[in-house]
Design a protein around this nucleic acid. Structure first.
Lengths: 199, 199
DNA sequence: GTCTATAGTCTGATAGAC
DNA sequence: GTCTATCAGACTATAGAC
């Protein structure tokens, strides 16, 4: 018989580590985040950190996997009637997560991380699942006549990911001129409707 | 009488350093670019590098200043009749520069760099000039009725900058599925017209 | 060549589960 | 009381600014 207490403790600690990594990656980015930071913030020794994740890269990869899995769940939970509205709601959700300090969906801030992710199986699998779900929604929205067929689906999917690491978000937030709601509105409307004419 | 030869040599070397920094910053980003890389690529000793630029941050700042100044010149040279078309042409130019390996207009890939730039006077001055020119064009385009008045000018200006560091560009380019012309078209049309309906 | 930062390792002490 | 996980922190190795 196993001791579920120990196991549960370990799981909780792993969650805590991932929570901290999520915040710190969002705040500082991969390169500027140190493993000492993470350990200190969680309140554990660095050696314990390495009991859970064999490297900084694996920790970041796992954090991304959790984000992708959450995003897939979020997509599945969408109640909007059309694919177009689901996409809008999904982007709005992602932007609000980002405003709260979450990590972007693309590891665009670090080419070193990006390279190591490209060989991380769980990461690729999770990304693939999310990609499939998003591509399907975009194609559906095209079928509804809501989205321009001239733009390829893979371009649109990539562009949606890219919105979550769009520095416009931080610049607007830093400016303190606009509320979070306004920022999200500008970005969602700007992305779907463009900047030409009235919305 | 001064010795113009020596001076000219120095200026040429400084230009060469900035050219190399421009390419390497575009290729690897600030954090991943090393001063050893730069010195090696220019073909000079690292110590010589520090004769021209007292720090990596100053080198990056000067590279950005040169980019901003070039962008202002590019704006001034625009022949298009309307402000709206000038903005489109300017974005297209910036994206093509980026595709050729140039640096983005926002230092969004490195928060450490960003912080040091915020205290760099020449950088701020150059940025301010470019900002003023772009803001004026955007307001003009709003006056022409070409751009949605619902979106604040500072949001649009920031969003234009952000297009030049949009990772969508690299992802599309890496995919090899589309030509540079197609990628630029997707991004310019996507930005101005949005992704809704036909272009 | 020097110095700092940081990923990753190792050790001896300690606390708590059983 | 024993044992195992965890702790604090010293330590190594390396990279890179200067």
């Amino acid at each position: 018989m196993v001791t579920p207490y120990r196991v549960k403790q370990l799981q909780m600690r792993e969650e805590a580590i991932l929570d901290v990594a999520h915040v710190l990656l969002g705040k500082y980015g991969y390169d500027a985040m140190t493993m000492d930071d993470v350990a200190a913030e969680v309140g554990i020794a660095k050696a314990s950190l390495y009991k859970h994740f064999e490297s900084k890269e694996k920790l970041a990869a796992k954090t991304m996997v959790r984000l992708f899995d959450r995003t897939v769940s979020e997509l599945a939970a969408q109640k909007a009637p059309t694919a177009y509205e689901k996409l809008r709601d999904m982007l709005e959700w992602a932007l609000r997560e980002r405003l709260k300090g979450g990590i972007p969906h693309l590891p665009s801030t670090s080419s070193t991380l990006e390279q190591s992710l490209m060989t991380d199986e769980p990461y690729l699998a999770s990304l693939f699942t999310l990609n499939a779900a998003l591509s399907q929604l975009v194609d559906q929205a095209k079928g509804e006549g809501a989205i321009a067929k001239e733009l390829p689906t893979d371009y649109i999917v990539t562009a949606i990911y890219a919105r979550t690491c769009d520095p416009t978000l931080e610049y607007m937030q830093r400016g303190k001129t606009y509320s979070d709601d306004e920022i999200v509105r500008f970005m969602v409307n700007g992305f779907f409707g463009g900047i030409v004419r009235a919305q």
